[in-house]
Every structure is written in structure tokens, then in C-alpha cells.
Design a protein around this nucleic acid. Sequence first.
DNA 1: TAATTGCATTTTGTATACAAGGATTGTACT
DNA 2: AGTACAATCCTTGTATACAAAATGCAATTA
Lengths: 235, 235
Amino acid sequence: MGDNFTVNMDEFLPLRDVVFNTLRRAILTGELKPGERLMEIHLANRLGVSRTPIREAIRKLELEGLVTMIPRRGAEVAQITEKSLQDVLEVRRALDALCVELACDRITSEEKEALKQACDEFEKATKTGDVTTIAGADVALHDIIVRATGNQRLIQLINNLSEQMYRYRFEYIKDEKGHDNLVNEHRMIYESILHGDKEKAAEAAKLHIDNQEKSIIRQIRMEREQQLKKKDRNV
Amino acid sequence: MGDNFTVNMDEFLPLRDVVFNTLRRAILTGELKPGERLMEIHLANRLGVSRTPIREAIRKLELEGLVTMIPRRGAEVAQITEKSLQDVLEVRRALDALCVELACDRITSEEKEALKQACDEFEKATKTGDVTTIAGADVALHDIIVRATGNQRLIQLINNLSEQMYRYRFEYIKDEKGHDNLVNEHRMIYESILHGDKEKAAEAAKLHIDNQEKSIIRQIRMEREQQLKKKDRNV
DNA sequence: TAATTGCATTTTGTATACAAGGATTGTACT
DNA sequence: AGTACAATCCTTGTATACAAAATGCAATTA
């Protein structure tokens, strides 16, 4: 008895966590835009819950840096500036390098195998040209490396930092002409880890971030230019 | 008009932030011990507020990793294991190295002067032998370096990671025989940054962390042994 | 016409009330 | 005496109610 229903585990999450995930997703996908106000009653009505879980979710988003609190005015989606993104990427460059170095030492043979497959999967994904598929394969690949470090704190930090750039992920993947660079970078990282060559792995990881940085910064500048033009037109 | 009063900004903090700071402090100083349950009504009565700000504070502590949520049972102070501390230190080693490297490039002459003074202050502090004074001087010194990076995200991350070890800070400072090592390590870092020698600075920073790690791990092992003995005696 | 004041509305901050789930204790039965 | 079951209490999860602050708008006055 009780086995007649297969329940979605998500249903057991407290509402605050459901709301947290929902809002986070909305922010990262750009559904909620930077600077947009998050008004509690409004969100509560929209999501069909009371203000309490909304508030608790906002507290977590606040600490994650995805929303900014304005005293006596409430929360709004955090602005992403070029500076803040460079800050994030600067940290990520160091942590990604640490990641692959640790992975060199600690990766198991099963994980090596999984990594190889993930590399192949990624290459295959680029050939489909479907952005969602590519993004998924990319996440999967990086996930294997990050997990291979066995360092829980590092895993958590890298995930959080990656998040900050998710809004640009799609454009970034679309942006890469041919994707050959991406495939090669991944191969390079994979080979280095396979042979336990820490230095080479770290260099490859840094290069990988550098290229992402260039692409994302370019995008941000384009976006800002477009916004400025729009303003000019309206004035 | 309006200048007649100088108000304490702290008084304007929302209760949730007051509670957050209070609880965090209590956890980091060891007043609230690992494994201890944080019961909302209890805390609310103790702090003279309602459950709402308590809950919101706990949400933030949860994301910071200082408390663990157990479903339908509430929050408890996060356990610190040797593994979790090694994880933190592993990340800190990388970020502290990044810190001094960035500082080499970006430190201003005023900051250089301040850093020199902080080094002297620290040496002076060690001579007083007062643990609180030494700890304060240590924080001040590291703060200057971290701030010199100009990377907001990095500043926030390092502060958060440092926090995780605050409970051991005092013992660690007491533990160091003569403090000469500490003074020398600080001097080394200072000199390297002064001359813009990134490699040397990074090495010095890593060494600094390594020594802290040794001391802290030793302490944790001692603590655990004592706890085991206590258990044995009771059984 | 412009500025200032006051009122109304909106929104956050805080407290409390209510419901549901788990744990513990006590009792009854074997 | 031990085990199983039930009732009660404790605690969290959620909703709502109330208070205070800020913003926006309008009206009045200079």
C-alpha cells in the first residue's frame, strides 16, 4: 500500500525550496531581468503560496548574490556589470585550475572512463547544433571533473560561480563559430587529466575560461550598446 | 538640518540581520556547539523577537554552511569534520595565492604603507602576548591584502571561508610557540607584494596556510581524542 | 506655474495563529 | 517484564494579520 503512487520527490521539498529553485531558475534564464523588483505579495499570488516561503527564498537568493536588498524597499534582481563578471571569472580561473589539478591526483578509473565518454558526447552534441543539447553535454562534462576532486566545498563554490554566468551560456555557445575550439579545449583538459599532467591541465582550464570570458564580455558590451541606442531613440 | 543627530546605523538593521549576526557570532565563537539544535521558539524567546526573523536568519546561515537543515526537525549547528576543514583549506590555499598575486599588480602606494604598518602592528601585538590583540592584528593585516585585490567576489569568498576556521583561531594563535614563524611569514608576504614578485608571494601565502592547516588539524585530532576518552569513561 | 505639504496607497517588517508531522511517554496487553 | 500501540506534546511549515515606513499623487498656496 502506498506504492500505487509514484510521487515526485520535489513534492516533499518545503515550499521555500520550491520557491527558491523557481526564482533562481527565473533569474538565471533571464525571465526575471536585472533590476526588476521582486514584490512579495505579487510573487506569492503568482506562485500560489503565502509570503513566508517567498521571503525565506529571497533570503537565500540574497546570500547567493542573485538578488540585492534595498532597505525598506525590498528585493530586486541583481545587476550584472562587466566588473562583477570579471570578478567572478577571475576567481573561477583560479578554482577551475585547482579543480583539474586535484582531479589529476584523485580521479578514479571509472571517472576517467566517464570523462572520455562525456568528451565524445560533447563533440557529438556540437554536431547536432542544438544549443540545449550542447549546454547539457558541457555541464555534464564539467560536472565529472568537479566531482572528481572529492572536495565538497569546491564543488559548491564552482557551481555557485558558474551560475552567475548561466544567463550568457546560451549566447556563448551559439556564439562560438564551429565549436571546434570548445571541443579541442575539452580534449586538451581530458588528455592532461588522463596523464596526470597537472601543469598542462591547469593551463588548459585557464585557457578555457579565458575564451569564455572574451565571448561573454563581448556580449555584455553589445547588450549595453543596444540599450543605450534604445534610450537614445526614446529621447 | 538633520546633521544634529549621528545615528548608529546598526539600529536600522532589520531584526533578521541582527539575529543573523548574533547567531553567526555565537556559532563561530563556539557558544553554540556543533550538533546543537537551533529551536525557533527557544531562540525567539532568548533574543526577544518572534520566530519570523529567526527563521530568515537561519535560511542565510544554512546557505553559508554554518547550520544544517534536517527535514521536519529544524536546524542544527553544522558539524566540523577534519575532511570538511581540509576541503575549506584546500580552496583557501588557491584563493589566498590568487589574492596576493592580484595584490602584487593592483596594490596602491597608500595600501603598501598601510600593509607595512599592519606588519609592524602585528609584530608588536605578538609581543603583548594577548590573544585577542594578536587575532585582531592578524585580521587587519589580511584584510588589507584581500581588499587590495579590488575583487568584491573574492573578498566575500575569502571572508566566508576564513569564518569557517574562526573557532580554531584563538587556539591556533596560542599554539604557535613564539609567534616568530607567523611574523616571518607575514614579512615574507609583505616583501613579495612590495616588490611585485607574484611567484614568491603566492608561495609565501600557501606556506602560511599550510602552517595554519597543520596547527588546526592537530587541534581537531586532540579534541576528538578527548571526546572519545570522555565517552569511554561514561560507558 | 512651481513647490510644498498632507493624505492615501503600497510594500516591507514583524508577530501570531493554525495545521501537520514526529517523537516521546505512558499504558495496556501478552 | 517487555513490547506494541495510542495519545499527547513539541516543533516545524505555512498563512494571515497588524504596524510602520516610503512613495506617489493631489491639492493648496505663494
